[in-house]
């Protein structure tokens, strides 16, 4: 194909200035993510001005430590939502996974085996959702809703009371606080293995999405599933994979969450699927699929986390209203996406 023949002039579209225009173009795609960053910064500034003590080591450390599980969940959902699907089961998967994990640990299982079991529980639920969706044509929200109730129900069968993880359990080591910078008084920059795990997950997910054929197929499916099929891409395998990834990461999030809290309960994680979806959407991933960034979802998760901090600091907003606010934010972003997409179609 390397034979050079005169190019037909009529098809060239004056695209001989790739430098500036085309280099800026991808940034237009990532506008929503930038918007999320702007919102995050604005919230930080507002919080600092209104309540103070936001831009400081301890707050930042806590933000990351408290939201590590949410970041992991959001990363998993990014895969699913980029293909145009959804996974409603992640919150319930955390419940069953952490409950099983704590109970096994308390029965004296090897902590490594426990952790592997917890992660695999997530994988199993993800696989089940994926098989239902891909092989039996069940709509994603129905399949994952069923998995959500199945997981929640099984968790409730195991126990309806909080199960406490022994304080000396090795699993809790994941929430060991490492002092990175010793600040004045308690104002230290600390991190935990959990945060490191979340960061690794983000890094690996980023590489998978952007530097592997699997990742590119995920985007291609979200752009147009029928085109992806016609291009001969492994659509079936990839769609199954995203649900397995989402489930597995939910299992991992359960490990992270359990190690931090030390308690597992059947009602753990109620409504977290909404938080995770909101984080992904706020971070600029299109609900209809095809566009999105893992890093955006991280920002989205931090926006939600910071919102909780601000609500607590404010004190005037009842904590019960949190889900309303999350819901409202999600709605606003979904509406914005709808607007942007319909604009784009018109031009």
């Amino acid at each position: 194909m390397s034979i050079l023949i005169d190019r037909p002039t009529s098809v060239s579209e004056g695209g001989s200035r790739p430098s500036l225009v085309s280099r800026l173009k991808p940034n237009v795609e990532s506008l929503p993510t930038l918007a999320a960053v702007v919102i995050f910064v604005a919230m930080v500034v507002y919080g600092e001005v209104a309540y103070g003590r936001i831009v400081q080591f301890s707050t930042i450390s806590n933000l990351l430590i408290n939201n590590a599980y949410l970041i992991i969940l959001a990363v998993g959902l990014t895969f699913v939502i980029v293909t145009g699907g959804v996974d409603l089961s992640v919150g319930a998967v955390i419940a069953i996974s952490s409950l099983v994990g704590v109970m096994l640990a308390n029965q004296g299982w090897n902590p490594i085996a426990v952790i592997i079991a917890m992660i695999l529980i997530g994988s199993v639920f993800g696989t089940a959702s994926g098989v239902l969706i891909q092989y039996f044509n069940v709509q994603p929200f129905i399949a994952t809703l069923a998995m959500m109730f199945l997981a929640r129900g099984l968790a409730s069968m195991l126990s309806t009371t909080p199960e406490r993880l022994a304080d000396d359990s090795p699993i809790r080591l994941f929430s060991t606080e490492w002092k990175v910078i010793d600040g004045p008084k308690i104002n230290d920059l600390v991190t935990t293995p959990n945060v490191v795990i979340a960061a690794l997950v983000v890094l690996v997910a980023f590489l998978v999405l952007h530097r592997t054929r699997l990742g590119r197929t995920v985007y291609a499916i979200g752009g147009s599933e029928s085109s992806a099929l016609l291009m001969g891409l492994p659509v079936v395998r990839t769609k199954l994979a995203v649900y397995v990834i989402s489930g597995t990461l939910a299992g991992l999030a359960a490990v992270v969450y359990t190690s931090k809290l030390g308690i597992a309960q059947n009602i753990t994680g109620v409504g977290w699927e909404l938080d995770a979806i909101a984080a992904v959407i706020i971070g600029g991933t299109l609900l209809t699929g095809g566009a999105g960034f893992v890093l955006g979802s991280v920002v989205g998760a931090l926006v939600l986390g910071l919102m909780n901090v601000l609500i607590t600091r404010d004190g005037g907003i009842p904590p019960e209203a949190t889900t309303i606010i999350t819901g409202a934010i999600l709605l606003v972003f979904v509406l914005l996406q709808r607007l942007v997409v319909s604009r784009k179609r018109k031009t």
Binding site: L132, F136, V138, I142, A143, A146, M147, M148, F149, L150, A151, R152, G153, L154, S156, M157, T160, N266
Partner: peptide, 18 residues
């Protein structure tokens, strides 16, 4: 234990969908 019901119902939905 009545806590088993949601799991059971979810299983039924899955079967009917299948």
């Amino acid at each position: 234990p009545s806590s088993a019901t949601p799991a059971f119902k979810a299983a039924v939905i899955v079967i009917i969908c299948l």
